[in-house]
Simulated scan of single mutants.
Amino acid sequence: MLGIESSCDETGVAILRWQPEAPGRGLLAHALYSQVKLHADYGGVVPELASRDHVRKLLPLVREALAEAGLQPADLGGVAYTAGPGLVGALLVGAAAGRALAWALGVPAIGVHHMEGHLLAPLLEDDPPEPPFVALLVSGGHSLLVEVKAIGEYRILGDTLDDAAGEAFDKTAKLMGLPYPGGPALAKLAEQGRPGVFRFSRPMTDRPGLDFSFSGLKTQVLLAWQHSDKSEQTRADIARGFEEAIVDTLLIKCRRALQATDTHRLVIAGGVGANRRLRAELAAAGEKDGFRTYFPRLAFCTDNGAMIALAGAIRLAGGQHQGEAVEVRPRWNLEDLPAA
């Protein structure tokens, strides 16, 4: 199975030999190209530039992955590509290439939901979670809590009302003058911050519900920064306070979701899932409260082709595949997916 990811600013390709009993051990190759340097001058992703760069990088990465796996194109048994959600131009690059390659080889193709790919990424590890579980999907564009009854049977428990967690990280870093990409830079700076110097609110935790809203937290940080002495230590202290607020909010909501579903397994995936403080706090909470946490390895937290290959392999094994039309869905509700 060839997996292609091109939903935003990273081009990911992977080759997976489908093994239902141990999917992670079937990963033969994966290659990733990040467009961070391309977009750094603009302080964010420029969709047209992202699409053009996918065109330049995708086929060389496919050749690289095939060479790493020691395979020829004719050895492929299927092609999976990200069909949404994401930037429409970027999605079309991966979908067109993936569908054309599948047609030329005479193998089935499947369009994969980007967030389902993230949700299933922990299955690439040696000790994968088994449904039912709750998944926290946190990235630059999404903050979702999902009840997973079975693969393909999803119920959204909580969603983003405005800024997603990763988006709040990036925007807060930018207003504090940190380099792009802001999220990792802010998290690194927070390691130098002193605990308790700045305490910001934990948004929407003082009321029932599992939805997220981080735009107000971003405003609190802006006001604190504007009225500070703007020293490097103060910058680090504010970053620490902001990161703690995000992590505490996610932790509170995860605990509520596990209680509401009477579930004892928690999957954390998406780019923010690589945050060290979040991983440590959720793991510690799991030991205290009696639930188990599952994380993908750091390389598979951000967008990658391996998660797309895995999700595609599962759905192709269940008899699902695409027609010959190249179709993408920039907006796509996870609950609309059919059972796998």
Rank of each mutant, 00 (worst) to 15 (best):
G3F: 10
S7L: 12
C8E: 13
V13Y: 09
A14T: 08
L16F: 06
R17I: 05
Q19V: 15
P20I: 09
E21M: 14
G26N: 04
A29C: 04
Y33R: 15
L38R: 14
L38K: 09
A40D: 11
G44R: 01
V45Y: 04
V46N: 03
V46T: 10
S51F: 07
S51Q: 14
E64A: 12
A67H: 12
E68I: 13
A69T: 12
G70R: 08
L71A: 10
A74Y: 07
D75Q: 02
D75N: 08
D75C: 04
L76V: 03
L87C: 03
V88S: 07
A90K: 01
A90W: 01
G94E: 01
A104W: 09
A104V: 09
L105A: 10
G106F: 08
V107N: 13
G111Q: 02
H113R: 02
H113F: 11
H114F: 10
E116G: 12
G117H: 11
L119T: 05
L123V: 13
L123Y: 05
D126L: 13
D126Y: 09
D127T: 14
D127R: 15
F133E: 14
L136M: 15
L137P: 10
L145F: 07
E147F: 15
I151G: 00
D162V: 09
D162T: 05
E167F: 04
A173L: 02
P179Y: 14
P181R: 12
G182A: 11
G183I: 13
P184T: 12
A185C: 10
L186W: 11
L186M: 14
A187F: 02
E191Y: 06
G193R: 05
P195D: 15
G196I: 01
V197N: 06
F200P: 02
F200L: 00
R202D: 00
G209L: 03
S215P: 08
G216D: 10
T219I: 08
L222W: 04
A224I: 11
W225H: 03
Q226K: 15
S228E: 00
E232P: 02
R235S: 04
I238V: 12
R240I: 05
G241F: 06
F242T: 02
E244F: 04
E244T: 10
T249E: 01
L250G: 07
L250M: 12
L250Q: 09
L251G: 15
L251F: 12
L258E: 03
Q259W: 13
Q259E: 15
I268G: 07
A269I: 06
G270K: 07
G271T: 03
R279K: 06
A280M: 12
A284L: 11
F291R: 08
R292F: 08
R292D: 06
T293R: 06
P296I: 06
C301F: 00
A306V: 02
I308S: 01
A309M: 07
A313K: 00
A313S: 14
A313Y: 00
I314Q: 00
R315C: 00
L316A: 02
L316S: 00
A317S: 11
G318S: 11
Q322G: 08
E324P: 13
A325V: 07
E327T: 14
A340S: 13
